[in-house]
Write a protein that binds this DNA or RNA. Sequence first.
DNA 1: CCGGAAGTGTCAGTGGCTGTCAATCATTGC
DNA 2: GCAATGATTGACAGCCACTGACACTTCCGG
Lengths: 188, 188
Amino acid sequence: MSRRAVQSRIARTAESLFVAKGFEETTVDEIAAAVGMSQRSFFRYFSSKDEVVLDSLERLGEDLAARLASRPPGEPEWDSLRRAFDPVVERFGDPVLRSHDAAIQRIIDGSPRLLASYLCRLERLQRVLTEALMERAGDGADAVVLRAMVGGAFACLHASAFPTIEDPEAFGPCLDRTMAALRPVAAR
Amino acid sequence: MSRRAVQSRIARTAESLFVAKGFEETTVDEIAAAVGMSQRSFFRYFSSKDEVVLDSLERLGEDLAARLASRPPGEPEWDSLRRAFDPVVERFGDPVLRSHDAAIQRIIDGSPRLLASYLCRLERLQRVLTEALMERAGDGADAVVLRAMVGGAFACLHASAFPTIEDPEAFGPCLDRTMAALRPVAAR
DNA sequence: CCGGAAGTGTCAGTGGCTGTCAATCATTGC
DNA sequence: GCAATGATTGACAGCCACTGACACTTCCGG
């Protein structure tokens, strides 16, 4: 059985436990026992308990970065960022994925510890996207402004995700509206 | 001796240890011993090891919120946010405070664990500032857009802080430049 | 059959953090 | 003065995330 498959099995088991008992209240020992392995082996597949929850986010991040890199060079950065967010909007379209993601989000919001790790990953992701934009813009670019722009775009994404937990289909339009309102004057 | 004074003594002692040995490499036992108290007592003054480092940020946050609340109601939100950041710019002006803050920042960046907690606090602070803006704007306000705007302003602050670690006096102008470039079209 | 490589379990240990309890100290009311 | 009371503390025990070391199995190429 491949490493990925085992990770996926652990993640599914762990998430159901988290939903049932809460993140902090579920020990690594319990997860390992539920999967049928030792605690030590759990840590061979995930470097921390947080990782189990945030692992899926990692892959989504790679997707965003690839999207952004493939946008046409002449396009205003703000629009490229909006298009890079398309995979997220798409996920919200699928009801199965959506309810799963909502569960994950509830787990994250329920634990300050986990929320902190989550924000840390977003931060790293923003750094990656900023570098992608920097490369595209060449030497004449203002690194600070680009960095802030990526942060601003993520703020729109983040803010739009909040109220959309109840209202399924509204995420895309809400993101469009927010990013239109926040569009920087510098984005031609 | 007042609670605040003890906290301050612990914080000073701990920070010097962190600078000398690194955050992760310094145990709470060591800090407690250096201050001359039991580990149990340390946790009566700070709820976690992170807290020691991030405590000062808490008070700065309150300052920002107060500044924002005292801005004239008619002022565009973006400008109010910029003015709310003035205390931060001022801190950068004082060389003593600046070098202290730089040390703190280096400690934070050196530990993923601590960086995560730090970002979590920034998140909470943003929520507070958003609520302040909401109150001011009244019922007609778009909560999502306001939330995103606060996030965007913080992104400017964050981005401006980065390159300014070496170049002392440039923080204020850099922040102005970035916030001018990112100014939302919605901000009249 | 042998070699190592990869995956696993066991065990012991570290460090952050919490609950509990008893001792101490300051405050208050008499 | 003094006793009751409440806050502060230290000592101790314990939980849990996480790590290092080592032994064992399985599987595969030679």
